[in-house]
Every structure is written in structure tokens, then in C-alpha cells.
């Protein structure tokens, strides 16, 4: 990987959740198993992988929703768990903003867009003239600065609401955005325009983006680097052109091959795909013993031998 200092480094992160049923014994869910990743300034890292593989958990640990069970998160070289001064914590919370999948859930239905953005501006840019700043930010995310401020969230489309969420990140002068499936609830044309916006935030504002998605095609569009997760581990990472264009790990290959192809009808009697997927899963779920650099910056996981039953 290039030699820039990462804006964010995740070192050997693990997260175990305990699930306690009303009756019976508690069980543990190993959501993340010893994951290390770097995010470089002004670049986007796509995090793709199986549903339930730990992608959102990863994002939530970065923004402090969950604490790691073990491992460290370094922001510009400083361990965030060591930030005890209020000012440092505030600076970090402001620098790293999260945008969620469901554009409906993240805005308060009782408040106008003006209220949402002015609040963020007042807290983080008290020196700016609020109305001028508001207009500028709305223009920046390509929302109509005249009609948008007076609207309530339900009066906007999903794509417009997602733009408001990005506007909020600009209002607090975020340096990094964790975007958790920001486009998966949007239709194709709107999805493209939101991706275009993220691309611009990156190139014009120098924002770093952790882009969590299950849509590999969009990762190709936005992200310089891609990491592929499976059952709490990273199984392949490196430049997107290589990871997506020339996947080497069995799970990444499966993911690349499974995309919908309108020319092939799905049937209930095709057991071949499920059987193939099962084999790949069994192999990929084993502990990653080493990450092997097969091309400069392109790593694939080596797994410990499958236990013989």
C-alpha cells in the first residue's frame, strides 16, 4: 500500500457479542475476528462481504457505538480509547461521521431540513453566518437551496434525504465518513447520483470514506481500495482494480460470479450453486493464519487446515 500515513488504522480488532436468551445458556457471536485495515486520507476503502460478516459492526466501532473486545483504533496515530480529554473526544466525534442505509431513520421527522443543518452548523461552525453556510452546503450536495430548508424529511425522496445526511457531515466539517450501505435502498438512477456526490466529496473536499456495501460494481466506481469480509475476517484486500478485477480468494470469486445475469433464469432445482457456495463457505470460515501478498498491496488470506471430523 502507498506510504501515506493512514487517517485511521484498525489493528487486530475483535468483537464478541454475548446473546442471552430468556432461558438457557448465553452464547457468543464472534462478529469480528482479529481484523486489521488502514484507511488513507482522501481515499475511499470499500468494505464488501457476506451478510452478517461484521461490516456494520466495524463501522459502529469506528464511530464509538461499540467498544472493541480487543485491538486498537488509531486516528492519525492516536489510540481513540486513550482520548480522555473532552476536547480530543469532541474533535474525533466531529471528524468521523456516519451515514446509514435507511435514509428514513436518520432524520427526525418532526424537524425541517433547516433545523437539522443549522443545529450542526451552530455546534461546529459557530463563526460562520448560518444562512450563508446553509445555502453553500445545500448547493454542495446538489439540493435546491431555496425550497429544501423549509421541508420536512418525509417530503423528500430517499435520494434527497441521503444528500441531507451528507450535508450534515459537511456542516460539522467531517474529515472522514463511514457510509453503511448508503445507496442500497435507492433505485439505479438515484444511486448513481449519490455515488457521484460521494466521489466529489472525496476529490474536492479531501474526505476519506469507508464505504460499506454489498454492491461490488459501485465499489469499483468509488473506492481505490477494497477489503472483502467473510464471517468476521478479512479474506482479501488491496487495490479495487485487482480485488474486483482479478479476485484470488475463493469467496471473492464466488461473490463476483453470483451477480444477477438477466440471461440466466433462476430455478429451484439448481443445486449446483448452493453446493458450490457451501464448499467455499466451509473453507473460508477457517481461521486466517496469514495474509499473503500476491501482488504489491494485494493480499489474500491463507486459512488453517480444515479440522477433520
Amino acid at each position: 500500500m502507498p506510504s501515506d500515513t493512514p487517517i485511521l488504522s484498525l489493528e487486530n480488532l475483535s468483537k464478541t457479542f454475548a446473546v442471552r436468551p430468556v432461558f438457557g445458556r448465553a452464547s457468543a457471536v464472534n462478529a469480528l475476528r482479529n481484523v486489521s485495515l488502514d484507511l488513507l486520507p482522501g481515499r475511499a476503502l470499500a468494505l464488501v462481504g457476506e451478510s452478517g460478516s461484521g461490516k456494520s459492526t466495524f463501522g459502529k466501532m469506528i464511530v464509538g457505538v461499540h467498544a472493541p473486545t480487543s485491538g486498537r483504533i488509531l486516528f492519525e496515530g492516536n489510540d481513540i480509547s486513550g482520548m480522555t480529554a473532552k476536547a480530543d473526544q469532541k474533535r474525533y466525534r466531529q471528524a468521523v461521521q456516519m451515514v446509514f442505509q435507511d435514509p428514513f431513520s436518520s432524520l427526525n421527522p418532526a424537524h425541517t431540513i433547516r433545523h437539522h443543518l443549522l443545529r450542526a452548523l451552530a455546534l461546529h461552525q459557530p463563526e460562520a453566518d448560518p444562512d450563508t453556510a446553509l445555502q453553500a452546503i445545500l448547493k454542495d450536495v446538489e439540493l435546491d437551496p431555496a425550497s429544501t430548508p423549509g421541508k420536512f424529511p418525509h417530503e423528500l425522496s430517499g435520494g434527497q434525504r441521503q444528500r441531507v445526511n451528507f450535508a450534515r457531515a459537511l456542516a460539522v466539517k467531517a474529515r472522514m465518513i463511514v457510509a453503511d450501505e448508503p445507496t442500497s435502498m435507492l433505485d439505479v438512477s438515484i444511486r448513481k447520483s449519490v455515488l457521484g456526490l460521494m466521489q466529489r466529496l472525496k476529490s474536492e473536499h479531501g474526505l476519506s470514506i469507508l464505504y460499506i456495501t454489498h454492491d461490488i460494481a459501485t465499489a469499483e466506481y468509488l473506492a481505490e481500495d477494497t477489503a472483502v469480509m467473510f464471517r468476521g475476517q478479512v479474506v482479501e484486500k488491496g487495490p479495487t482494480s485487482q480485488v474486483v478485477g482479478n479476485p484470488q480468494h475463493g469467496y471473492t470469486k464466488l461473490l463476483r460470479a453470483a451477480g444477477p445475469n438477466p440471461e440466466v433464469r433462476l430455478t429451484g432445482s439448481d443445486a449446483g450453486f448452493a453446493a458450490q457456495a457451501k464448499l467455499v463457505r466451509e473453507a473460508s470460515t477457517q481461521v486466517v493464519s496469514a495474509l499473503c501478498e500476491i501482488n504489491p498491496g494485494h493480499f489474500i488470506a491463507e486459512h488453517t487446515e480444515m479440522a477433520h471430523v
Binding site: S184, P260, T267, G268, F273
Partner: peptide, 20 residues
């Protein structure tokens, strides 16, 4: 919409099998 393409395909094939 919230699924990766591998799980999506497995589940839709399962739906088709049940439909049959």
C-alpha cells in the same frame, strides 16, 4: 436489497424451490 449476491441467489432459489 440488504443482501450480498451470493445469499440473495441462494435464498431466491430456495423461494423458487418452495414455490414448485
Amino acid at each position: 436489497t440488504a443482501l450480498d449476491v451470493v445469499v440473495q441467489r441462494e435464498i431466491l432459489q430456495e423461494v423458487l424451490r418452495l414455490k414448485d
